[in-house]
C-alpha cells in the first residue's frame, strides 16, 4: 500500500501508470455515459408529477454529486501537498479545480433549465441550486487564486489553504442554506421529495453517477498528464520516453 502511494508521487511512474489507466477509462466512461443517457432518456418511465422533464435528473444530480466530491478530492490533495510537500499532489489539486468548476456549472445550468417547466421560472432560489452556486464561487476562487500567483509553488500552497478552509465550510454552508430555504419557503416545491424513487428510475441514475465519477477521474488524469508533459519537458525520463516512440 505505502509502496503504491510512494510510487504515485513519482512523475515518471505516474505518467506510465496513468497512460494505461486512461486507455481503459476512456472507453468505459463513454460506454457508461451513453448507456446511462439512453436508459434515462428513452427507457425509464416518466415521473407521475413532473412528466418527462424529470429526465434532466440523470445529468443534474450526477454532476452535482461529483462536483461536490471533486472539491473534497481537491482539498485532500491540498492537505497532502501542504503536509508532505509532494509535487504530484499540487498537480492533482491544480487539475481538479477546473474540472470541478465545469461540473458545478453543468449542475447549475441543467438545474435552471429544469426549473422552467417545473416552477415556470429559469432561476429559482432553491436550496440545492443556491448551494451549487456557492460551490461554483468556491471553485472559481481557487482557480483565480492559482492564476494570480506568479510563483506556482506558492500558488499551490495558497490554494491548498483555501480549499481546506472551504472544505471545513462546505457542510456548514450546505446546512445553513438548507435552513434558510426551509424558513422562507413552503416545503411543497421540491425537486425530488423524500419519497422513495422507483428502481426503474433509480438504476439509470446510479449508472450515470458512476459514469460521472469515471469522467471526473478521466479528465483529472488527462489534465495531470498534460501538465506533467509541460513541466517535465527538460527531464531525462520524458526525453527517453519520447525517443523510444
Amino acid at each position: 500500500m505505502w509502496a503504491f502511494i510512494h510510487k504515485l508521487g513519482s512523475p515518471p511512474w505516474f505518467f506510465g501508470f496513468s497512460g494505461t489507466l486512461v486507455r481503459w477509462l476512456l472507453p468505459v466512461t463513454v460506454t457508461l455515459l451513453l448507456v446511462g443517457a439512453v436508459w434515462g432518456l428513452l427507457v425509464a418511465p416518466p415521473d407521475f408529477r413532473q412528466g418527462n422533464s424529470y429526465r434532466i435528473i440523470y445529468i443534474h444530480v450526477p454532476a452535482a454529486v461529483v462536483a461536490l466530491a471533486g472539491y473534497y478530492v481537491m482539498a485532500f490533495a491540498g492537505a497532502v501537498s501542504l503536509i508532505w510537500r509532494i509535487k504530484m499532489a499540487d498537480v492533482t489539486m491544480r487539475a481538479a479545480a477546473p474540472v470541478g468548476a465545469v461540473l458545478t456549472a453543468i449542475a447549475l445550468v441543467t438545474g435552471a433549465i429544469w426549473g422552467k417547466p417545473t416552477w415556470g421560472a429559469w432561476w429559482v432560489w432553491d436550496a440545492r441550486i443556491t448551494s451549487m452556486l456557492i460551490l461554483l464561487f468556491l471553485y472559481l476562487g481557487v482557480v483565480a487564486l492559482f492564476e494570480a500567483y506568479e510563483n506556482k509553488t506558492a500558488a499551490a500552497r495558497a490554494c491548498a489553504v483555501l480549499s481546506l478552509v472551504g472544505m471545513v465550510n462546505i457542510p456548514i454552508i450546505y446546512k445553513s442554506v438548507d435552513w434558510w430555504y426551509s424558513l422562507h419557503q413552503p416545503a411543497s416545491i421540491k425537486f425530488t421529495g423524500e419519497s422513495a424513487i422507483d428502481s426503474s428510475m433509480l438504476y439509470p441514475l446510479l449508472l450515470m453517477i458512476l459514469a460521472f465519477y469515471c469522467l471526473f477521474a478521466l479528465t483529472l488524469l488527462l489534465n495531470m498528464r498534460a501538465e506533467l508533459l509541460w513541466t517535465h519537458r527538460d527531464s531525462g525520463w520524458l526525453k527517453q520516453l519520447v525517443g523510444d516512440t
Binding site: I134, L135, F137, L138, L140, G141, A144, L145, A148, L162, V165, G166, N169, I172, I173, K175, S176, V177, W179, W180, L183
Partner: peptide, 20 residues
Amino acid sequence: LLLSLLIIPLNVPVLIFGTT
C-alpha cells in the same frame, strides 16, 4: 477583487444565521 471572490462564499453561513 480576488479577495471578494475568496471571502464571499465563506461568509454565507454568517449572513444567513445573522439575518435569521
